[in-house]
Structure formats: structure tokens, C-alpha cells
């Protein structure tokens, strides 16, 4: 017992000396091993010695060893804390180095723009519909009040598969398909791919995207059409744009209108504005009240129900919004162009 006591005293002395000389973590670890290593440390040795003592002495001796062990642990911890504190100041990293960048894919601008348009109409309670891209002459033309061989078809230059099948020239055939299936109230938009026999140039492409809208119900008026498009266009572009409705002609609407918005590029102040040509207006939409013949074609009574329809080019409108000068950029898929829209 006495032996043990003096041994502890000796260790303690040695420890105090050793601790005062520790300057770094490695030395600290060495010291820790010397005293606390589970198999060969001094404390372990003391514990072995404890086992040889008579039982009545074990309790006091054990207490002595534990106190000693606690003391060592506390001292070592203190030292370690000091080192850690110092470390922060000594080994600071250059925090101005660039962070790890996450590579997110960029959505195609036409999709971005289409979704933006869809969102506004979804908020107004519209549903999204679509239909086949290979259409019959009936749905693409006849049901929409284009008689066979009518010159009105010239404005819709068509790519044909055969005498009856064609690539839809507008999303309007989906109006017919939906009205055949569903009775009013109908409140839909139809975004989709359409085709024309056009050679690509800065403002034309043989394939592009359109969005059509259709509302049919009891008591739908031209004023409702104006209100709906007014809300949409202001949400889409700017609350302060001016909107102009002027008479036009489409076989499937009567009365028909074309809708212009004030040029947001020059605000009507530049005579040679590339976007509005100095007129101050940019044509955005075609619209009108659903022609009574179109309603009859789908067995909806035009005396009871009325409706409005509108359509716009997604490409053209996106070109206006983002000031993209050439429509072909959308279909070249140059990633430098697409990647610009990673923030959209």
C-alpha cells in the first residue's frame, strides 16, 4: 500500500514536469499513451498492482488511483483545449477561395416561357389539354370552319402526310377534340407543337410552339375575353403595358381580334425600333368569339352557349420578352444559349 502511494507520488511529479514541456499535439498524445494506454500505461500498471493487494486495502488504494487518473485526464484535456484554441488562429484557411459549385441543368427557354404562361392560366382556373400532332384535315381545318380549297388555308401553310393526314398547323384542333368530349363549362389552354411549311429564317421555322385558350359557357362575352387577356398579358409582361384589341379575321372566330401590347423595348419612342418598327405596338395574340359554326360542328348550341378562343406563338412571344433576335436559336440548341436560361 505504501509502495503504491509513493509510486503515485512519483508519477505525479514526473507528470507535472512532463506536462510543462509538452508543446504540441504529438507530444501530448505521447504523454497520454505513457500514462493512460490501456495495456502498458502507468495507470494500467497501478491497476495491476492493485489486484495484488489484500482485499481490505483495495478500496482506499483504488480511490487513490482513480483520483490520480482523473487528475491526469483533466490536465491533458486542459492542454488539448489550449492547443485547439491556438490552432484556429495558426492554421486559418483562405476563405476567399471559390465554393463548390453545383451543376444544375438549364431548362430550354421555350419550356421556361411556356410554364410561365401556363402558371398564369392555372391560377385563373384553366386546365391544360393537348392532342395529337399528326391530325386529320377535319380537325385541323374543316371543323374549324375552313372549307376545303378555301384561300384562308393559305395562311396556314401545311405539311401533309397524305390526303387526309397532316401535321397540325395550329393547336386549335384540340379545341374541337375537347368540345366533342366535354360539355360546357370548358376552360382550357392548349400549349403544343405545331408545324408549317416554312423554311427557317430569323422569324420562321417549320416547327414551333403555340398556346391556345378556349372558354365556353353560358353567357361568355367578348368583354370576358378582353378581361381575361388583360389579366394574362399584364401578369406576363408588366402591369403598366397598354393593350389594344383590333378587328381581324380567323375562320373559327367571329368577331375576331388581334391583340397588340405597347412596345416594352422602346415604349413607342423610337422611330426605328427593331421590335415594333416604330409603331409602338407589338402583335401578341389572335383571338375572338368562337364562331357559331364551330360550336354547331361539335353539337354545342350557339344560341345557348358562347365562348372565346385565343392563340399565341410561344416562340415569338419569348423572342419579344427575352429580346432574342433569331428564332433559329431555339432549335440549334447551342448550350451557350441554353445555359443562359439556367437562372430562369
Amino acid at each position: 500500500m505504501k509502495d503504491l502511494k509513493s509510486k503515485i507520488e512519483q508519477y505525479r511529479k514526473e507528470f507535472e514536469e512532463a506536462v510543462s514541456e509538452v508543446r504540441d499535439s504529438a507530444a501530448l498524445q505521447k504523454l497520454r499513451n505513457l500514462y493512460l494506454s490501456r495495456k502498458k500505461g502507468y495507470v494500467a500498471g497501478l491497476m495491476d498492482q492493485l489486484k495484488t493487494l489484500p482485499n481490505e486495502a483495495k478500496r482506499d488504494a483504488g480511490q487513490l488511483i482513480n483520483t490520480f487518473k482523473d487528475h491526469i485526464q483533466a490536465e491533458l484535456q486542459k492542454l488539448q483545449d489550449t492547443f485547439q484554441k491556438q490552432k484556429k488562429y495558426v492554421k486559418a484557411v483562405d476563405l476567399t477561395l471559390p465554393g463548390t459549385k453545383c451543376y444544375w441543368g438549364a431548362p430550354h427557354p421555350l419550356r421556361v416561357f411556356q410554364e410561365k404562361m401556363e402558371d398564369i392560366f392555372l391560377r385563373m382556373g384553366f386546365s391544360i389539354e393537348d392532342g395529337p400532332e399528326i391530325e386529320t384535315d377535319y380537325y385541323n381545318f374543316e371543323a374549324l370552319n375552313f372549307p376545303p380549297h378555301h384561300p384562308a388555308r393559305d395562311d396556314w401553310d401545311t405539311l401533309y402526310i397524305n390526303d387526309d393526314l397532316l401535321l397540325r398547323t395550329h393547336t386549335s384542333p384540340v379545341q374541337i377534340r375537347v368540345m366533342e368530349k366535354k360539355k360546357p363549362p370548358i376552360r382550357i389552354i392548349i400549349p403544343g407543337k405545331v408545324f408549317r411549311k416554312e423554311t427557317p429564317d430569323p422569324t420562321h421555322a417549320p416547327m414551333f410552339f403555340q398556346m391556345e385558350g378556349l372558354v365556353v359557357d353560358l353567357g361568355i362575352t367578348f368583354a370576358d375575353l378582353k378581361g381575361t387577356l388583360d389579366f394574362f398579358l399584364k401578369a406576363m409582361f408588366h402591369n403598366k403595358i397598354k393593350i389594344r384589341f383590333r378587328p381581324s379575321f380567323f375562320p373559327f372566330t367571329e368577331p375576331s381580334a388581334e391583340v397588340d401590347i405597347s412596345c416594352t423595348v422602346c415604349n413607342g419612342k423610337k422611330d426605328d425600333c427593331r421590335v415594333c418598327g416604330g409603331t409602338g405596338w407589338v402583335e401578341i395574340l389572335g383571338a375572338g368569339m368562337v364562331d357559331p359554326q364551330v360550336l354547331k360542328n361539335v353539337n354545342i348550341d350557339p344560341e345557348k352557349y358562347s365562348g372565346f378562343a385565343f392563340g399565341m406563338g410561344i416562340d415569338r412571344t419569348a423572342m419579344f420578352e427575352y429580346q432574342i433576335p433569331d428564332m433559329r436559336l431555339f432549335y440549334e440548341n447551342d448550350l451557350r444559349f441554353i445555359r443562359e436560361f439556367s437562372r430562369k
Binding site: S127, D217, K226
Partner: peptide, 20 residues
């Protein structure tokens, strides 16, 4: 004059899922 026609909104009487 189309410009003299007022702005109103079509009443919403039925709600649908929005998209399939």
C-alpha cells in the same frame, strides 16, 4: 370600337385538376 368594350372576367363555376 373594340376599345369601348369593357373588361370583365368569365365566372368560374367548376374546378378541374388543371393537368392530367
Amino acid at each position: 370600337g373594340y376599345d369601348k368594350i369593357p373588361l370583365t372576367l368569365p365566372p368560374l363555376k367548376e374546378l378541374e385538376p388543371g393537368m392530367d
